[in-house]
Structures are given as C-alpha cells and as structure tokens.
C-alpha cells in the first residue's frame, strides 16, 4: 500500500449508527458515496463505498475515539458527543442536520433548585452527559452532584433520585409528558465533521475535498 504523504491510499470515514445515521447517509450519497449497502445491511460494520473510500459504522459516542486514534481519518458525530467526550480531534464543519439541544430541566411548578442549594448545599442532577453537566454548573458557580444514567433520564426526578436533569430535547414533548420544565438551554447541537490531526495533514487533499463538498451540499 502506498502510504507516502499527500498520496495516501484510503480515506476511512466513521459514521454513527443511531439518530444521525440516515442523515449522514443522505449527505454522503449527495456527494457521490455509494451508500446502498449501508442502508441495506445493518449487521456489517465496514463498507467499501467507492475507490479509496471506506466507511466504518460505530456507536455514536465511539466516533471521536476512532478518529482520535487514527483508526478513522474523519467522522460524523453530534456536537453533544464532542462536548461530552472532549477528544483531541479537529472539528471541520457543521453539517447542519441532526439538530438538538442539551437542556437543563426540573419538575413543573416551583423550581426545587433554590431550596436544595440553600439547605443542602448541592443538588442532584441526573444525566447521560456528566462532563457537560459539570462544566455548565461550574460555570455558574453552583455545586451539583451528577448522577450518571444510561437512559430514561426523565424518570429520575419522579422517583426522587435527582432534583433535575440534563438531557437532549428536540420538541420538548418528552419533558412535558414527564412533568418537567426546561430551565436553561446549555448547548445547541448538530452533526459535525471531525478529522484526525495527523490525517488532516497527511491526507490533506482528500479531507479538504470531503469538507468542501459536504459544505457545498449542506449550505
């Protein structure tokens, strides 16, 4: 395999299975990637999608890991994952789809925050995003205890596991159904194109081209 600089063999792209999967494939199809097999086969993990191009599919939160280590040259990932995991990668472009917000919510009615902070000094916040949560409350100078959960975050306040939650919200419907009210918007997120810091230089031509064309079809 020819690995000499500026003429590297293959561009490996990591695409997240999950909510950004369909949107990612649509975009890649628009710029000429042959993604038919990715749509058809949900068990296979690596795909050849044209001359010199490989796509690997991973869990969304693993995409930055693959890219940081250089197992993938570039990847598509939600900004929420980037904020949470803080991997050492280049963030090249906002791909404009997969929009969502990270919000802080507490039960309807009187916000329990003040009482908790006043009497207990710290409140408990349940979340899938412990780092985002910690950063956000640290920035406000408030003490919180983050309780890391893997799913159904909105359940936590109902069973007195936590006073509030930090979670993704799209329409806000889930919050409403669970009698939660959004108290703050922490971040607005969308899908991003990221790249490995070595690949960005050694495969500059391929990655610049990919970035340029993805930007073209997203704008």
């Amino acid at each position: 395999m020819d690995r000499s600089p500026l003429n590297p063999g293959i561009l490996k792209l990591a695409v997240p299975r999950g909510s950004l999967f369909a949107g990612s494939l649509d975009l890649l199809e628009k710029i000429g990637f042959d993604v038919g097999e990715l749509r058809a086969n949900d068990r296979k993990l690596t795909f050849e999608v044209g001359e010199g191009r490989t796509i690997i599919t991973t869990r969304p939160s693993d995409v930055p890991t693959y890219v940081e280590y250089g197992a993938a040259d570039a990847g598509i990932v939600g900004k929420d994952v980037l904020l949470e995991h803080k991997r050492n990668v280049y963030e090249l472009a906002d791909l404009g789809f997969g929009g969502c917000r990270v919000v802080y919510a507490t039960p309807e009615g009187r916000d329990p925050e003040d009482e908790e902070l006043k009497h207990l000094g710290a409140m408990r916040v349940a979340t899938k995003f412990p780092n985002i949560t910690r950063d956000y409350f640290e920035g406000l100078g408030k003490q919180v205890e983050t309780i890391e959960l893997r799913g159904s975050i909105e359940l936590a306040p109902q069973v007195d596991l936590a006073e509030g939650i930090v979670d993704l919200a799209a329409s806000g419907e889930t919050l409403k159904q669970n009698n939660l009210v959004e108290r703050a918007e922490i971040a607005v997120c969308s899908a991003r194109l990221i790249a490995n810091r070595v690949s960005l230089r050694l495969k500059a031509d391929m990655i610049n081209e990919l970035t340029r064309r993805l930007k073209e079809v997203t704008n």
């Binding site: 690995r3 600089p5 590297p8 940081e68 280590y69 250089g70 197992a71 050492n88 490995n196 810091r197 070595v198 690949s199 230089r201 050694l202």
Partner: peptide, 9 residues
C-alpha cells in the same frame, strides 16, 4: 512530526 501509521504526532 507525523507518521501515517500513527494517529498522533
């Protein structure tokens, strides 16, 4: 300094 086999400088 970059090497193609490595993801970091």
């Amino acid at each position: 300094v970059l090497s193609g086999g490595l993801g970091f400088p």
